[in-house]
């Protein structure tokens, strides 16, 4: 019997954007509120897993043509890079810098290099979760 997934697929398409927005919110709120790279990354991969449930694995790979193992590498590079960047200024490994920067559109924004480290965590968490789920899903 051929199943009809219109309801599931339509809601997944709507809900996917809500989950991704909330994940980005969690990611950026991590410095002052509960949240951060780990939860944000898990929730982003949760949104992609929702698409995997609603559609088949080939459609999702076509929609997100990302090699998640390379994503893990990029994330680790971000983490090591921000940690090692402090060595260039002759201060101990993993020392972070922060300050207020005036950006063209956003105005005065307080930026912190811990954010870049968090980006690394975010990418690694997405990469590891999606690699695990896709490798389990593909082996039949």
């Amino acid at each position: 019997m051929k199943t009809n997934d219109v309801i599931l697929q339509t809601t997944s398409k709507v809900v996917f954007f809500m989950i991704v927005l909330f994940a980005i919110h969690l990611f950026f709120a991590g410095h002052y509120n509960p949240g951060g790279g780990f939860v944000g990354g898990l929730m982003t991969s949760g949104a992609i897993v929702l698409l995997l449930l609603a559609f088949d694995i080939k459609t999702v790979v076509k929609g997100f043509p990302i090699d998640y193992i390379i994503l893990v590498g990029i994330g680790l590079l971000f983490a090591v890079g921000t940690a090692a960047g402090s060595l260039l200024f002759n201060i101990p490994f993993f020392t972070h810098a922060f300050g207020d920067v005036t950006l063209p559109v956003l105005g005065k924004t307080s930026l912190h290099t811990a954010m870049l480290f968090d980006t690394g965590v975010y990418l690694v968490v997405i990469g590891v979760t999606m690699t695990i789920i896709q490798t389990i899903g593909e082996s039949e």
Partner: peptide, 26 residues
């Protein structure tokens, strides 16, 4: 985020119920 939670539950909970019922029937 609570408003987003209300909208999210309003969208997803009936779809969850529909999927459970359909899986049971099938």
């Amino acid at each position: 985020r609570v408003l987003l939670g209300i909208a999210f539950i309003f969208i997803t909970a009936p779809v969850g119920g529909h999927l459970i019922s359909r899986a049971a029937y099938n």
